[in-house]
Amino acid sequence: MLVLGIHNNTRIFDLAIYMPILHGKLGKILLWSIVVLILFFLAIPLFVVFPISLSASSYLEFPPKSLSSQWYANYFSSHAWISATILSFKVALMVMAVASIIGTTAAFGLNRGRFRWKGGVFVLILSPMIIPTIVISVGIYSFFAKLGLIENYWGLVLGHSILATPFVFINVFAALQGFDRTLEKASASLGANPIRTFYYITFPLIRPGVFVGALFAFLVSFDELVISMWISGSRHTLPVQMWMDVRLEINPTLAAVSSLLIGLSILTFFSAEAVRRRTERKYG
């Protein structure tokens, strides 16, 4: 996921430059078989989960003997599932906003500021990506308990934002590195004050980075299980609900939910990619 925002100019055939063996017809076949194999390997869960979700059986059955949409119907009619989904959406949208603002401002600060310990601050902002989530969770749990943020909407938002901010930060930071600051000087010389310059010039040009970062922030929160398990209490987010379901009564509703989740992720990913391509086409 991280790769998308940073090395967004790498194309698969660039690899051929580094591997002379991949030239020629045989090479092309070899390259494609490897690529297809890797893609298949990555997509295996989908090939298993999606058929199970359509099964008529009440057990996890693969391949399904007969088809039915009952597990999807079950999901949409279940109060527990739907309220968990709504909570997850609410949290993820708020996390998207919080992480976008904090991540973007942090990226501006580190890109433009002149201060000591810049490298240190950089690592600090990225640390939630490096430190195991379980360690963060324990810390958050004991700290939030004192603040009364357990089983609380804002507690979840804050907890998830810690994990999501680095994704926004790194995407916006990369966008700012590629931003030519002469454009801001030009804008000023043409009569635009700093706020207008940001609104008309700087932000439109780094918007793809902010946008992709925000999508990742959404997904990080929507996917998040470990922190949520510690602090969500009886108000389950969707991943927590899924986890509980696995532990208590395994049935294909889980597979239906998983399929929907995968669908959502794919949609998000492709829209991020579409934004990137559109900007690339437009401004080269």
């Binding site: 002469t182 000087k185 030009a186 010389s189 004050n193 700093p194 010039i201 439109p204 401004y283």
Partner: peptide, 18 residues
């Protein structure tokens, strides 16, 4: 700068790409 009303042409042109 933005209140000076002075035109400027930059070496790399600095046209707004969007």
């Amino acid at each position: 700068t933005y209140k000076r009303n002075i035109g400027m042409v930059f070496q790399n042109y600095a046209l707004f790409p969007h």
